[in-house]
C-alpha cells in the first residue's frame, strides 16, 4: 500500500487519510501551536492559533484534512508573529493577571505565550467587567479568563451528555453561559467528576480546594519545554 506523505517545514512525514494536518503533525512529533484543539474532541477551528500555510495559503491545521503532497509551513517567523498577535489579543480582551491566578504555571494560554516568546501585550487592555460564579460547592467559574475555546461546551455536550455550557451573544458580546434558569453553576447538572470540569485550558473553570497545590518550580510548564509538554499531552495527555 502506498504511504501518503506531506511536508511540514520541508520535512516529509506520512499520514493516515482520516487525519487533519494537526493530527498528522502531532503523530509525527511536530508541535503546531493551538488552544481550541484537543485530541479528544471534534475540531472547532476558532482560535486560529494553529494557522499554517498550506501550498502558500493560510489554513487552520486543526480543521484542514491532511492530503497528499501538501507543503505546509509551520515554524516560520511570519506565522509565529501572527500567532503572537492573536495570543496578545486573547490576553487584552480578558482579565489575565497571572501573578494572582490559580492556574498559573499549568495554563496553556500562558505556556503558549512563553513558547512564542511573547513579552508584552502590545494592544491596549480592555479590562472588561466579567462574571465570577462561586455558587457551586466544587467548581468555580471565573469568566475573566475565558477565551471562548468551547472545549467545556464540547465536553459537556459530547462526553458528559449534559450540555451545561453554551456561548451566548455575538462578537465582542460573546460570553459563556450555563444551562440554568438562575444562571448559576450550582443549578446545573455539572459534577466535579465531569470531563467538562477539567478540560478548560485556562483558569476559567477551576476545581475548588486544589489551587496552588504545586509550588512554583514544580508546575506543569515550569521547566518542561512548553512545546514538548503540549505535544506529549496531544499524543495521549
Amino acid at each position: 500500500m502506498d504511504q501518503k506523505t506531506l511536508t511540514i517545514d520541508g520535512v516529509e512525514l506520512s499520514f493516515d487519510p482520516r487525519q487533519t494536518i494537526m493530527e498528522a503533525a502531532a503523530a509525527a512529533g511536530v508541535y503546531i501551536p493551538h488552544l481550541c484543539h484537543h485530541p479528544d474532541f471534534k475540531p472547532h477551528g476558532s482560535c486560529k492559533l494553529c494557522t499554517v500555510k498550506v501550498n502558500g495559503r493560510f489554513a487552520s491545521a486543526c480543521t484542514l484534512p491532511a492530503a497528499e503532497g501538501q507543503e505546509v509551513l509551520n515554524k516560520t517567523l511570519e506565522l509565529n508573529q501572527l500567532r503572537t498577535r492573536i495570543t496578545q489579543m486573547l490576553f487584552v480582551e480578558g482579565n489575565h493577571f497571572c501573578p494572582g491566578c490559580e492556574i498559573s504555571g499549568h495554563c496553556k494560554l500562558q505556556a503558549t505565550a512563553y513558547g512564542l516568546g511573547m513579552l508584552d501585550s502590545h494592544f491596549p487592555h480592555f479590562y472588561p467587567a466579567r462574571r465570577v460564579d462561586a455558587s457551586h460547592p466544587d467548581i468555580m467559574l471565573d469568566l475573566d479568563r475565558c477565551i471562548l475555546c468551547e472545549l467545556c461546551v464540547r465536553a459537556s455536550r459530547d462526553m458528559d451528555g449534559k450540555s451545561v455550557f453554551g456561548i451566548a451573544g455575538r462578537g465582542m458580546e460573546s460570553h459563556l453561559v450555563v444551562a440554568a434558569e438562575s444562571g448559576a453553576l450550582v443549578d446545573t447538572l455539572i459534577e466535579v467528576s465531569d470531563r467538562a470540569a477539567h478540560v478548560c485550558p485556562v483558569g476559567a473553570i477551576l476545581i475548588k480546594h486544589t489551587a496552588y497545590e504545586k509550588p512554583i518550580g514544580q508546575r506543569r510548564y515550569d521547566h518542561h519545554p512548553i512545546q514538548a509538554a503540549l505535544l506529549q499531552e496531544d499524543q495521549g495527555d
Binding site: 487584552v92 482579565n95 493577571f97 497571572c98 508584552d120 501585550s121 479590562y127 466579567r130
Partner: peptide
C-alpha cells in the same frame, strides 16, 4: 524598559479597573 507585570499590563493594581 517596562519592567514587570504591572508596567506591562497594569498587574494586580489593575484588578480595580472594573
Amino acid at each position: 524598559v517596562a519592567v514587570g507585570a504591572c508596567a506591562i499590563n497594569g498587574g494586580i493594581p489593575a484588578m480595580r479597573n472594573h
